[in-house]
């Protein structure tokens, strides 16, 4: 059974539903967390994740297979999340909405104060800085991978990340 993204993409294009299911399983959690950290809202993160995978499926034939699949996917996740933030301006100006689902253990944890402070600080960053912090610290991408997703040199990734961390530090220490 093949496991690489390239193989799964090809099998999905050939009509294999199981292959598409495996792509969803592999990336659903990461796209959901990326969306949650950008949007700051559980329901919006669900909508964004769903929309991203529908678009992936619809546009898979146009995907350049010389590129990394995850870069294409994350790029789509970022764009869709930022669009959702623009659509839901209440999220930009308001507080994080708590999940409306019955809280499970993980959902209870996200209400903890430290997490709330980090999320609030993230929302005060500009888009570019917020995205680079999320890709580095919440999606665990390397500098090169972030550069690949955003289409910028890794040198720019570093300078953007370091500025973002400095801004986060100022906000979290009350200096910003």
């Amino acid at each position: 059974m093949s496991t690489t993204d390239s193989s799964l993409v090809i099998e999905t294009l050939n009509g294999d539903r199981e292959a598409f299911g495996r792509l969803v399983e592999k990336y659903e959690r990461r796209i959901f967390n990326l969306a949650f950290r950008i949007c700051g809202d559980y329901e919006d993160a669900m909508d964004v994740t769903q929309t991203v995978f529908v678009k992936v499926f619809d546009r898979l034939e146009t995907f350049d297979q010389s590129r990394k699949f995850f870069s294409w996917l994350y790029r789509m996740g970022i764009n869709e999340s930022l669009n959702q933030v623009k659509r839901q301006s209440r999220i930009v100006h308001g507080e994080c909405d708590p999940p409306s689902h019955a809280p499970g253990p993980d959902q209870r944890i996200i209400r903890e104060e430290s997490d709330g402070l980090v999320q609030a600080a993230l929302k005060r960053l500009g888009e570019d800085q917020r995205v680079v912090i999320i890709l580095r610290h919440f999606v665990d991408l390397s500098y090169i991978q972030i550069g690949d997703v955003l289409g910028i040199p890794d040198k720019t990734v570093k300078s953007r990340l370091y500025s973002a961390r400095q801004r986060m530090k100022e906000i979290l220490t009350g200096a910003g």
């Binding site: 996200i110 430290s114 997490d115 919440f138």
Partner: peptide
């Protein structure tokens, strides 16, 4: 950085 990294992963 520790504070950022301590934020938990959310279960979809």
């Amino acid at each position: 950085v520790r504070a950022i990294d301590s934020a938990v992963e959310i279960e979809p």
